[in-house]
Computed example of a mutant assay.
Amino acid sequence: MSCPICNKEAVARYRPFCCKRCADIDLGRWLKGDYAVPATDPEDTEKAAEEMARATPRLH
């Protein structure tokens, strides 16, 4: 199996990645939303915005 970030051979400790650096790059991409599937239905976008508003604590 090759690392999905750099295509080097995967290492068991970091599988499916080859090293911590590649695992961290992948995590960063997830956190930034790079792997998100875009919604094309306006209702989906509206529902997602409402759910985020409910989940986000308000600051006073």
Rank of each mutant, 00 (worst) to 15 (best):
P4C: 02
P4N: 05
P4S: 02
C6Y: 04
C6Q: 03
C6T: 10
C6L: 01
C6W: 03
N7G: 00
N7V: 00
N7S: 14
N7P: 00
E9S: 11
E9H: 11
A10F: 05
A10D: 09
V11K: 07
V11R: 03
A12M: 08
A12D: 12
A12V: 12
R13H: 09
R13L: 07
R13G: 00
Y14R: 00
Y14H: 10
Y14L: 00
Y14A: 01
R15W: 04
P16R: 07
P16T: 08
F17A: 01
F17S: 01
F17W: 02
C18Q: 01
C18T: 04
C18I: 02
C19D: 08
C19M: 04
K20G: 06
R21S: 04
C22I: 03
C22Y: 01
C22P: 06
C22L: 02
A23I: 00
A23E: 13
D24V: 11
D26C: 07
D26F: 15
D26S: 14
D26A: 13
L27C: 07
L27Y: 11
G28H: 11
G28L: 06
G28W: 09
R29I: 00
R29P: 00
R29E: 06
W30I: 14
W30R: 15
W30C: 09
L31E: 15
L31A: 14
L31F: 14
L31C: 03
L31P: 07
K32H: 09
K32P: 00
K32F: 08
K32T: 05
K32L: 12
G33S: 09
G33A: 03
G33V: 11
D34R: 15
D34F: 13
A36P: 02
A36F: 12
A36V: 13
V37N: 07
V37Q: 15
V37I: 14
V37M: 09
P38S: 03
P38G: 06
A39C: 12
A39Y: 15
A39V: 15
T40D: 15
D41H: 10
D41V: 10
D41M: 03
D41W: 12
D41Y: 10
P42R: 07
P42C: 01
P42Y: 08
E43V: 15
E43P: 05
D44H: 09
D44S: 05
T45G: 09
E46M: 05
K47T: 10
K47G: 02
K47C: 11
A48K: 13
A48N: 13
E50A: 15
E50N: 12
E51S: 14
E51D: 13
E51N: 11
M52Q: 06
A53D: 06
A53K: 14
A53P: 00
R54W: 11
R54Q: 09
A55E: 10
T56V: 10
T56H: 05
P57I: 12
R58L: 01
